[in-house]
């Protein structure tokens, strides 16, 4: 299994990950967690104890909204992106991508040798 990313590294981008999962449509807590794990190839694990306070904070900031549903006899809380959340996601996605490129250019030479060997 690939090594997981460090907590410090992902801390600032967890909300962005949650928003991006919701960009694909309604999700509930457990499915968000599963999707993030799958999308990152098991390298990002978002513990339940972090995920739910984060979801509630995003809702508080009006970036996502929630609704309860009894589909399939199971009472479940679903989340969706709001318009504000969509705007924020687009802005932050641009910012992160250019940040990652920038960091990539800076760090590229450091790993040059490793890449070659790999």
């Amino acid at each position: 299994m690939t090594e997981r990313f460090g907590r410090d590294l992902i801390r600032g981008s967890l909300d962005l990950m949650v928003l991006s999962v919701l960009a694909g449509g309604s999700q509930y807590g457990y499915s968000i967690q599963k999707r993030i794990r799958a999308a990152s190839g098991d390298r990002v694990s978002l513990p339940a104890g972090t995920l739910y306070p984060l979801l509630h904070k995003l809702e508080e900031d009006k970036l996502i909204r929630s609704r309860w549903d009894n589909e399939g006899g199971r009472r479940r809380k679903w989340y969706d992106l709001t318009a504000k959340g969509k705007r924020k996601l687009t802005e932050q996605a641009k910012e992160w991508t250019s940040y990652a490129e920038c960091l990539g250019r800076l760090l590229g030479p450091v790993l040059g040798g490793v890449e070659a060997r790999g």
Binding site: A48, Y52, R74, R75, K77
Partner: peptide, 10 residues
């Protein structure tokens, strides 16, 4: 109750 319900589902 809402928080408990959500976490229990998980």
């Amino acid at each position: 109750e809402q928080i408990a319900g959500e976490l229990r589902d998980h």
